[in-house]
């Protein structure tokens, strides 16, 4: 592989992973935009989505499926529908049970609660891996990483080229780009989306307008969780390995992306996701893999300390 081919390869990997990070980051930024909560459990929600996806694959018998057949495509679409519902519903439920009661308390109380939820989710992920299903290795090694079957072909679409651009990369963009467009339309144009922005900008005024604030916040958790669910499926199909502690790292990457783009800003989260995805890919290639996490954390700290409103744009960012 020549130097430019290596560069191109990392660019593809970075952009694909960046889009996945962006989907998770959107969930962070939406929730932060509306109630100023760093939803610490968001990464672990994403992890649970991966486990739900693998369970579904086991139930549907998709682990035997061959990539590219119509049955596999239908299975993938089913996954992309059901897992987001699971994640969205779970996120909504957690808000209902844990965070809603803390709206009027100090800001740190819901954050501590979210950390607790993150631990609970992580533990659920550990136990989930112990379910005696074939896809989980019959539950013999609960904590071990699980293989996620190849639902999309790994064949290089660029033919003989040394640079690999596969159906998986195409899938990432085919799923994420329209979804982001849909989300933008939802937030800008629909009544529910406008209500979300109104609640984010001035909760009291929104209440006085008759906007049922708790319901709108619940919807935000639902949508943010749904996006994490889509990210779960796309991630698992793209990377083929899942494990119960993956949520923490994924969550940190995504949160860093959200902060980088100016937390609360939707386009910022996407841009931040791409930056983090690319930074990781290039650090893996040109520096050392073992320093990649340090790089991400260093970026996170530096941005929070020196540009807390994000790298792009001013403080008065559109929230939600």
């Amino acid at each position: 592989m020549s130097g430019s081919e290596i560069f191109l390869q990392q660019l593809i990997i970075g952009l694909s992973n960046g889009m996945i990070i962006a989907l998770i980051a959107l969930g962070y930024t939406m929730v932060y935009g509306i109630i100023e909560l760093i939803n610490f459990a968001h990464g672990d929600l994403f992890m649970l989505g991966c486990f739900a996806g693998l369970t579904l694959i086991g139930l549907l018998g998709l682990d035997q499926a061959v990539a590219g057949t119509s049955g596999t495509w239908i299975g993938l679409i089913l996954l992309l529908l059901i897992v987001p519902i699971f994640c969205g519903g779970l996120n909504w439920l957690v808000d209902r049970l844990a965070y809603r009661h803390l709206r009027e308390s100090t800001k740190l109380a819901p954050l501590v609660s979210a950390i607790g939820v993150s631990f609970i989710f992580m533990n659920i992920g550990l136990l989930w891996g112990g379910i005696p299903m074939k896809v989980f290795g019959f539950g013999r090694a609960a904590a071990a990483p699980k293989a996620f079957p190849e639902l999309v072909s790994n064949a290089n679409l660029l033919g003989q080229s040394a640079v690999e651009f596969t159906g998986k990369d195409v899938m990432v963009f085919v799923v994420t780009l329209p979804l982001m467009a849909l989300l933008t339309w939802f937030v800008r144009r629909t009544r529910a989306g406008k209500a979300m922005r109104a609640v984010a900008q001035d909760r009291l005024a929104a209440q006085l307008m008759g906007i049922p604030v708790d319901r709108v916040i619940g919807q935000t958790f639902l949508i943010g969780g749904g996006l994490a669910g889509v990210a779960s499926v796309v991630f698992a199909v793209y990377n083929n390995t899942i494990y119960f502690q993956m949520g923490y790292r994924a969550g940190i990457d995504a949160f860093t992306a959200a902060v980088l783009g100016g937390i609360g800003s939707l386009p910022g989260a996407v841009l931040g996701g791409l930056v983090i995805g690319l930074a990781r890919a290039f650090c893996d290639q040109y520096l050392e893999t073992r320093w990649t996490n340090v790089l991400v954390f260093a970026v996170l700290i530096l941005v929070l300390v020196f540009r807390p409103s994000g790298l792009f744009g001013s403080r008065a960012k559109e929230k939600v």
Binding site: A98, H101, A109, G116, I120, L126, L127, G129, A142
Partner: peptide
């Protein structure tokens, strides 16, 4: 069996402790 080992429920209990205390 992962479910019956008490140690495998540890983080769930820590998490619940935080959530319930806050609540």
């Amino acid at each position: 069996n992962v479910f019956t080992a008490p140690g495998n429920w540890k983080y769930m209990l820590y998490g619940l402790a935080l959530v319930l205390m806050m609540r």
